[in-house]
Write a protein that binds this DNA or RNA. Structure first.
Lengths: 227, 227
DNA sequence: TACGTTTGACAATGACGCATGTCAATATCA
DNA sequence: TGATATTGACATGCGTCATTGTCAAACGTA
């Protein structure tokens, strides 16, 4: 019946191609997500508030994301890859020394957190409470960072010098130390200078580095009183 | 005009005094809160679900608590004081040695988490996303634990042996290490034996203990080498 | 200029949950 | 035994928000 309209495409709108406009909108939504999620948190963030901040209407939200959770996942991945890049860039040229590398990595991480506190809220707080899906995402991400630490440890201390330790556990412990240190720092309003915070955290890495080679080979379950 | 009824009190109902019945209901709600908050999390927990689990009706919920947030706070405080008691009980009789005390404390903490994983969700995950009010609560609590660690550090390593470290920062780092270690353990399904996890975390304490007395006295940004 | 596309503002729908209210059944006390 | 306190099951009001839909204005193309 109805004359099926030919639906001719418009090549460019305001001088920008369709794909690119869509990509821009998506990007604006991710920025807005960082802002809203990072300040009021995921659970208090409404789609409306995000769209308002992005200067877009709700319709465009659902053009790019299935729902609020999907946007959060995208924001999270965005931050993680950003941090990973910065971290790798800081570690690659560093001398192969525990203390130096620890300081380089921690300076990068802590600096990023201070420069943009919204990161913390998203990376270390809300991510665990969004959904199982996002939770898995975060496990993989922090596991990745722990893997980094673990690799360093394993490289610098070969098997026989590790005193029966499980590198994965130790690495996660160190990552946790960094996370909680920066959270304490943030809560206090970033009073202490960056170098101080880095130093106090790096000491844990250095101490472990100094301790391992000489650690008693006693196993945890030690039945052996190894003197 | 209605004859004002005299509202005589009933001393006991089913053999139990009014106050005690009310206290029991409150206690049942806290138990239910632990269960629901600890499994599905705060934001997915409904008042109805909590009441159903407590075998009480909503009316009694609001008899004991202003709202869901207030119940969460009560549950949180309950867990914290329980943990603190257990921790103190474990540390008091322990020999005054870093490694030994760390192991005693960590064994208590990690054991509690494994025995009741709901603790973790409430203590380390949801608590930061409930409200500013509850957030402050948690800061005080974790600050308390850090204070404990800090006191130990300060006791065992007097001023002149601390290599320009800030005990608060170091303590928070160690607490974070413990937290993330137990979270990694939990996520893996508590595969490793308790002793192994404790050992791998205690090493951080021991390493620091061994490192401090001989640490270079170089300050990070040393302003005053105050001796 | 005329027509279809793209966009922005906003309304409509429906689901959900908190908080309070109603009412009958049961227990206690005079 | 009758009156009132207490309880338990359920209903209601109210607000919020996700998601879809409507419509006119702005824009690009023929």
């Amino acid at each position: 019946m109805a004359t099926k309209t030919t639906r001719r495409k418009i090549s460019r709108f305001r001088g920008i191609a369709a794909e690119e406009r869509q990509a821009q909108r998506r990007s604006m939504l991710i920025d807005a997500g960082l802002e809203i999620f990072g300040t009021v948190g995921f659970h208090a963030a409404t789609v409306r508030a995000i769209c308002t901040h992005a200067k877009l209407t709700e319709r465009y939200f659902y053009e790019s994301f299935e729902n609020r959770e999907a946007l959060f996942a995208a924001v999270y991945e965005h931050l993680v890859s950003h941090l990973r890049d910065a971290l790798v860039a800081a570690l690659l040229p560093a001398p192969r020394d525990v203390g130096t590398m620890a300081r380089a990595g921690l300076t990068t991480l802590f600096g990023a957190m201070r420069d943009d506190p919204r990161y913390m809220r998203i990376l270390f707080v809300d991510v665990f409470t969004v959904s199982d899906e996002v939770d898995r995402l975060s496990r993989r991400a922090t596991g990745g960072f722990a893997q980094l630490v673990q690799t360093l440890v394993e490289t610098m201390y070969p098997q026989d010098r590790r005193a029966g330790l499980d590198p994965r556990l130790v690495a996660h412990g160190l990552v946790g130390a960094a996370m909680n240190t920066v959270m304490y720092w943030a809560y206090g309003g970033y009073k202490e200078p960056l170098e101080t915070v880095v130093h106090n955290c790096a000491v844990l890495f250095e101490a472990l580095g100094a301790y391992l080679p000489q650690a008693p080979v006693a196993k945890p379950r030690s039945k052996v009183g190894k003197s």
